[in-house]
Write a protein that binds this DNA or RNA. Structure first.
Lengths: 244, 244
DNA sequence: TAGTGGTCTAGACCACATG
DNA sequence: ATGTGGTCTAGACCACTAT
């Protein structure tokens, strides 16, 4: 890996430094939650002005790779968006209290990867994957049904643990049991009508429209770790955006 | 309006300057598309370092209020998102050529504001509004049906012009005919099933799910100018996002 | 060639967090 | 008290756009 900077490239210094730091973060030189060297230190080791270091780190910050706190330092950011699905759905209790989504693993199987899952995870068509069916509950009512696919090889630790003990959040589980850290994700939303099986799971009438959120979760090195489809009643869907 | 800076506030200089410039943009001191003074000039008139000016202008840029081009200058940004709806829908021709959406005004009426429109436009419940029904066409097929509501008072020029001459884009029309410039908008997406009338307009079977995009378009002063609902077949809906 | 924004430096001082 | 990031300055030089 490059550990020097400047010299030849036509790229601005601060971008070269950004790339260099980003590469080291991807390579886990510093763990998520841990601090990277201070501005002064980076300025010293790479022989660039502090202002240039700032510019590089600000770029990383804008990209969400690090977080800065005034008197404390700059830290590699931990992703925590396991329940970000709820960004797209509004599940209100009757009196509008905040929701406390519970997870129930309905089944866990070792299967040949379905086509879409294999593609998303960059696996060969017949590779083995772990399939989890999972329900997210709000006040004892199922609101989201999820099909989750994981490369069997990398996640084999999950086959030896009782699904009841998985807990409500999967990403911390992946980290704890498999040493795999989800750093980012891509989501695509579409609308379908439910199949019979899904309707039953979610307690919906047949042919109800549902919003499908397909998510590919990526590690810090950009490799796909998990692919999932989440389905919830379209009537509960709401998404707002500002445009300019 | 403040035309000096520094002295009292606990806010950083560059934010004070940002606010000051933003206020002048809102007040149309410079027209959209026109340049604001150069960094050197701003530095001179407000007696701050060029670096501080840069910081302020970069903030405005991040907020989408201005655009910079290297050797040319910094310009007040014109909004141009009339067809941003298509961000949420994918209408492919059979061979995947780029689409050229056409607009047809189906009707124009002067009516009492419906409740939602009145709320969105900050009008009294029975105020008069112009209601436009409009179809967006791709390859002679209707793909989006829109209900558009405008305060009759501010948009009365549109009552005296033939709807056939409105053209494909409304926002430039508003600017040309009424002197009203759309600067930003808020959109909310939900899913419904079509009414009979809508199904007929869009050539869809009854009870087809549709995605509804409600948009409130705002002027540069933040006042609501237009409220519209756009409906398109949910099967054509697709939205992608990166999350971290 | 003149004027603009873009990069980079070197350093002062401030504000915040921690021991 | 120390070390961190945050603000601000002053100026050099470069790269792009226009004329």
């Amino acid at each position: 890996m490059l550990d020097q900077i400047g010299a030849d490239s036509r790229l601005p210094l601060y971008l070269q430094l950004r790339d260099l730091l980003a590469a080291q973060i991807r390579a886990q030189k510093w763990q998520p939650g841990q601090p990277i060297p201070s501005e002064a230190e980076l300025s010293q080791t790479y022989q660039v002005a502090v202002g240039t270091v700032r510019r590089a780190v600000e770029t990383l910050m804008a990209e969400g790779l690090v977080e800065r706190t005034h008197g404390r330092g700059t830290f590699v950011r931990k992703a925590r968006f396991d329940n970000s699905l709820f960004r797209f759905f509004r599940f209100e209790t009757a009196d509008g209290r905040p929701l406390a989504p519970k997870s129930v693993i309905v089944s866990r199987k070792l299967i040949d990867a379905p086509r879409q899952a294999a593609e998303a995870l960059h696996l060969k068509p017949r590779a083995k994957v772990i399939e989890l069916l999972r329900l997210r509950m709000v006040e004892q009512q199922p609101v989201l049904a999820e099909n989750i696919y994981l490369c069997a090889q990398r996640f084999k630790a999950l086959l030896e643990k009782a699904p009841e003990d998985f807990g409500d959040l999967l990403y911390p589980l992946y980290e704890r049991e498999c040493g795999l850290i989800v750093a980012s994700a891509r989501e695509t939303l579409t609308v379908e009508t439910v199949t019979k099986a899904q309707a039953q799971l979610l307690g919906l009438p047949e042919k109800t429209p549902v919003v499908v959120i397909e998510r590919t979760a990526l590690g810090s090195d950009g490799q796909p770790l998990e692919w999932r489809q989440s389905r919830g009643a379209a009537s509960k869907f709401r998404y707002s955006a500002e445009i300019r």
